[in-house]
């Protein structure tokens, strides 16, 4: 039996690449042979291990919003330095610059600083004033502090959902996803798995309860 089932078949079986007759043949062989069962288990475990470790990457980088001009300047600067000098966080922020430059809607989304992309005044007001769960065009799902101590809130607006943190008196997008056109079903931003993963990556401690939110709001999220 072991001669007719090789490791390639076991791997293809685990990957779901075999037609049903062939898959049945491998399944029967594995069930009847402890050595094959062990091999299949090892490959299944390894695939699951890679899945788990790499899954966190498949969400947009929780990146600072930077301008494309800054991105180019930093890349030019970086080209003149040893590569490993640049910390990963900065590299991640460069990615955010390109991405969020694409994501932020053309209308609004411009701060008074020409070099930075901040959130629109309306979104900023909503983040300043609303409590989680309030029904409005902008919905805030969660409030928390990130590891640097900044106040952050996850939100869903009509064309953008994500997580913003307040820094120097302005809300900055730390993670954003564009939504094509108007959305009819507003889900809570925090309930979306990807946004939730971003929150999980950023949060220090627990999300705020209502009292903590009201206290933070009273302080202007500073």
């Amino acid at each position: 039996m072991i001669n007719t089932i090789d490791e390639a078949s076991i791997i293809a079986w685990i990957d779901g690449e075999l037609a049903s007759a062939e898959a049945d043949r491998v399944a029967r062989a594995v069930a009847g042979d402890p050595a094959l069962a062990e091999l299949a288990e090892a490959h299944r475990d390894m695939r699951a291990r890679f899945d788990a470790a790499f899954a966190t990457l498949a969400m947009p980088a929780a990146a600072e919003v930077v301008s494309l001009a800054d991105v180019r300047a930093q890349r030019a600067e970086r080209a003149r330095r040893p590569r490993r000098w640049i910390p990963a966080a900065l590299a991640a922020s460069l990615v955010g610059g390109v991405l969020l430059g694409q994501l932020v809607p053309r209308s609004g989304g411009i701060s008074d600083n020409a070099d930075a992309l901040a959130l629109s005044p309306a979104l900023g007001r909503a983040l300043d004033q609303q409590l989680s769960g309030d029904g409005a065009t902008v919905r805030v799902a969660l409030s928390f502090r990130d590891r640097a101590g900044r106040y952050c809130r996850s939100f869903t607006a009509s064309r953008l959902s994500g997580v913003a943190c307040k820094d120097d008196g302005l809300w900055h997008l730390r993670y954003g996803e564009g939504a094509a056109g108007a959305r009819t079903d507003y889900r809570m931003a925090g309930s979306e798995p990807v946004a939730m993963a971003a929150v999980t990556a950023m949060i220090a401690g627990e999300p705020f309860d209502r009292d903590q939110e009201q206290a933070a709001r009273a302080r202007g999220w500073r």
């Binding site: 790499f54 498949a58 947009p60 590569r83 640049i86 990963a88 590299a91 460069l94 990615v95 390109v98």
Partner: peptide
């Protein structure tokens, strides 16, 4: 997001992966 993961699958470290993604 998927490209970011693929970049990490190919690259030797996170810095290289972010460079490749960019």
């Amino acid at each position: 997001p998927r490209l970011r993961r693929f970049a990490h699958g190919l690259s030797r470290d996170a810095t290289d992966a972010d460079d490749l993604l960019q």
